[in-house]
């Protein structure tokens, strides 16, 4: 949305990601704030921030596939798992470095995503959602049964990274690695959407027949979208595994896929900023619910053993309410609020 007085004189200016000096300054300040964050907060909040950053990578990846290309995926959780196991195998079992493990996790997951993306040539909408649901269950089963590689139900213990003599074994030092990778990947995604490839993704989403008529190779761009999205999932999964120092199959079940889908729907489909809002919201929500239910548990003793079930129910209810009352997501609402104040008090 553009307002009066908001002139652009060149296409380059019009395509900028951050369009005003104020936004540029704000984003720079926010990045500096994130750099200083570990020295301000307690370790448990730092841990949550780290999980949010990892979720941002995964959510941006899923949004590229579902929000920008219109291919519904219920298998993001399993793709995170492929990444986590790949990196775990490379670092813990082959003894190679983290710096090889994480990119390799991205590449292997991208390949897995391309394989499971093949049905997208023929299937769309609902059918594709069900196909990806199947891939979720099949991959989960492989995680549990392919014991020589995945460690079966025992899982794998993985190390934290190091460069030369310096080990990133504290949460504070590891946080910086995650922060830098997340920033680079978000920036890459935002830029990707301004290229021919990104516009082709959106054309495929908006009307795939028209896109094909305009010379966009549907199969190529759908598979490419699966590959890019899975690459993001793989990197996020690998970072997650290294942050916990442990990888096992139940960390990547169908529930994780649902949480990621909820992130991008609540944040805003087809919006990079929306994926970030969604990731923040969906990581903070369970923590908040845990605090609330433990508080309730002290005043109503009977409630303690029901806490997990209650949390799940409230989580579900919030998803439902969001979809009914805020179907376009947080990013859209934020835009509306900004527009309101920009034109206040004369909203014409």
């Amino acid at each position: 949305m553009h307002y009066c007085g908001d002139y652009r004189t060149s296409y380059e200016k019009d395509m900028e990601i951050l369009q005003t000096p104020v936004t540029k300054a704000f984003v720079a300040a926010f990045f500096l704030f994130l750099l200083a964050w570990p020295f301000v907060v307690k370790s448990e909040f730092l841990w949550i921030t780290m999980q949010i950053l990892i979720a941002v990578i995964g959510a941006v990846g899923l949004n590229i596939l579902t929000g920008f290309t219109g291919q519904i995926s219920l298998g993001q959780g399993a793709f995170l798992g492929v990444g986590a196991y790949t990196s775990a195998y490379i670092t813990a079992k082959m003894g190679l470095s983290f710096w090889i493990g994480v990119p390799a996790a991205g590449v292997v997951t991208a390949l897995a995503g391309m394989i499971f993306g093949i049905p997208s040539l023929r299937l769309k909408g609902l059918y594709l959602a069900i196909a990806t649901l199947a891939s979720q269950f099949i991959l989960e089963w492989i995680f549990l049964r392919w014991e020589p590689v995945t460690g079966g139900s025992f899982g794998i213990v993985v190390p934290r990274p190091s460069i030369g003599g310096f080990a990133f074994d504290t949460d504070r030092s590891y946080y910086y690695i995650v922060l830098v990778i997340a920033a680079v990947m978000v920036l890459f995604a935002a830029n990707l959407m301004r290229t021919r490839t990104g516009r082709a993704f959106m054309a495929v989403r908006d009307h795939y027949i028209s896109a094909e008529i305009m010379g966009i190779n549907l199969f190529k761009y759908r598979i490419l979208s699966f590959a890019v999205s899975s690459f993001y999932a793989g990197v996020a999964g690998a970072l997650y595994g290294h942050s916990l120092r442990y990888v096992s199959s139940e960390q990547f079940n169908i529930g994780v896929s649902i949480v990621y889908l909820a992130m991008i729907i609540i944040g805003g489909l087809g919006s990079i900023l929306g994926s970030i809002y969604g990731a923040v919201f969906m990581i903070l929500l369970p923590k908040l619910l845990t605090v609330v239910t433990t508080q309730l548990g002290t005043s109503f003793p009977g409630i303690a053993e029901l806490a997990i079930a209650l949390e799940q129910g409230i989580f579900g209810a919030i998803i439902i309410l969001f979809l009914i009352f805020e179907p376009d997501g947080l990013a859209h609402r934020w835009k509306m609020i900004k527009a309101y104040w920009k034109l206040y008090p004369f909203s014409y």
């Binding site: 609902l126 029901l306 998803i319």
Partner: peptide, 21 residues
């Protein structure tokens, strides 16, 4: 479709939790 899928998933979580409670 994706919103409708999500809303029924939310519903499933609520029903599951209600039964457990």
């Amino acid at each position: 479709i994706i919103s409708i899928i999500m809303v029924t998933i939310g519903l499933s979580l609520v029903l599951r939790s209600a039964v457990s409670v």
